[in-house]
Design a protein around this nucleic acid. Structure first.
Lengths: 156, 156
DNA sequence: CGTGAAACAGATGCGGC
DNA sequence: GCCGCATCTGTTTCACG
């Protein structure tokens, strides 16, 4: 991806718009307009500009996974055999729906993944039957998140 | 939070609606209606039901932090002194805007946080001047994410 | 549950300043 | 850049099957 991010200037009004929409992507533009005392058309123009700049990477509905019975979140550090290339392992991890994030990290492990499971038993199955079955995975270290106490985006 | 999640039944139509909105929270309900061949009013009713069930936890605009010059993401494992209670430390971590997530974890550390910084130098400042200055923090271990290769929500 | 119609509200494009 | 206006589209409610 290439963006024209060299001239990207975000002024106070842009920031206000972004803060509103980061908290609620469905907030009507006209409502935001009234809140910050500017016309709806102006907000619209600014949003087009921000979108063109690549700063706006879309919007998401947030699902409360707990209500769906997914209560166990964990981070898993994965050690790969020297022979195993990272992209090949990632391709396998993509096929595991419980894997929500995957990072290529410095430090002890080759890969750090975040997984979301229904319960500890489900987590065990994902570890044993999915992740550790991937070729090249030699060992894993699991850290269960007993509570997620902060969850937010970058502060604008 | 308590929800009436005992009777929560999600059928195929609900799943389709959710999949559309999880990918793009601003997608018009009428467009979804046309895609799946049902009236707009029906989608609207289902969304109200899903919202009341607590499954819908809002929506967010996603910001591309790279365009804002934030290119260094890292996970930091934090060791707390025995005397230090977790909630007190979390309260301090909340004040650090670079901290995006904070998990109370099993395993070696007391806390695992995700931080997003402009560059390695900024990360170093956050570690030395912010996180390690928090009372009760004895030691940290940092894992820089060289690349985030998967980033998604729960699969419906 | 679903539908279609009606009333309301928001989105979008444009000329003008 | 912003505004106001006109038009189009989407949202929301409601009575009914």
């Amino acid at each position: 991806m290439k963006f024209n991010n060299e001239k990207l200037k975000i002024d106070g009004i842009d920031k206000k718009i972004l803060r509103f929409l980061m908290a609620d992507a469905r907030k009507p533009v006209l409502e935001i307009a009234r809140s910050i005392g500017i016309s709806g058309a102006a907000i619209h123009q600014r949003l087009r500009k921000l979108e063109a700049s690549g700063l706006l990477a879309g919007s998401k509905f947030v699902i409360n996974a707990k209500v769906m019975g997914y209560t166990t979140m964990a981070y898993v550090g994965i050690y790969l055999d020297k022979a195993m290339s990272n992209p090949v392992a990632v391709k396998q991890l993509e096929k595991v729906p419980e894997v929500l994030e995957c990072h290529y990290t410095t430090g002890d492990w080759s890969i750090l993944v975040k997984v979301l499971c229904r319960d500890n038993e489900h987590l065990m199955q994902v570890l044993n039957n999915e992740i550790q079955q991937i070729e090249g995975v030699s060992r894993t270290e699991t850290f269960i998140s007993l509570a997620q106490q902060i969850d937010r985006q970058i502060t604008i």
